[in-house]
């Protein structure tokens, strides 16, 4: 067991973690952030992606103790407390980018990680930005248009 401190969605946590515990398990089983999904356990599908210190990581490949001192953002951290959706979430709804929804939280975070670094991506850059996240339902087209729309919303100062 090891004690670590981390911030999730701006809130500090100090927790005891087992050596072999993945960040994914810490977030889901211990801290209750079930918006983080497990789809493959080998970093291939991207459904467990979270933002760690500004970078998109697959939380199934990060050990919990490696998150010591880090800042994590999960899907639960995007909506404002008054219920207002983050512009990316709003864009996903408006463009019809959601189907079964299992890839959606991580897809939204992948879009955030991209747009935080590149506020005006081209279609190719968007496709690259979400290429680590698999979706079996949408064929990605509406996700790409949602990210484009989100960029517009963000550049206008939110929707």
């Amino acid at each position: 067991m090891k004690t670590i401190s981390l911030k999730v969605n701006g809130k500090p946590y100090t927790v005891e973690v087992e050596e072999d515990m993945r960040l994914l398990d810490l977030l889901r089983d211990k801290l209750g952030f079930t918006g983080v999904k497990e789809g493959c356990a080998e970093g291939e599908c991207g459904a467990c992606s979270v933002i760690m210190d500004g970078n998109l990581v697959t939380s199934c490949l990060v050990m919990a103790f490696q998150a010591d001192g880090k800042e994590i953002i999960t899907i639960e951290g995007l909506q404002s407390e008054d219920g207002t959706l983050h512009p990316i979430q709003q864009a996903f709804l408006d463009e019809g980018a959601v189907q079964c929804g299992f890839c959606t939280p991580a897809m939204v975070l992948a879009a955030k990680a991209l747009l935080d670094k590149n506020p005006n991506p081209t279609d190719e850059q968007i496709k690259e930005g979400i290429s680590g996240n698999l979706c079996r339902c949408t064929g990605y087209a509406k996700i790409v248009s949602a990210v484009k729309k989100a960029a517009e919303y963000l550049n206008q100062g939110g929707k």
Binding site: F92, L93, V98, G101, P105
Partner: peptide, 10 residues
């Protein structure tokens, strides 16, 4: 979609 909000918010 009516189930969209729950899905984009996790």
């Amino acid at each position: 979609r009516v189930d969209g909000l729950a899905k984009v918010t996790g």
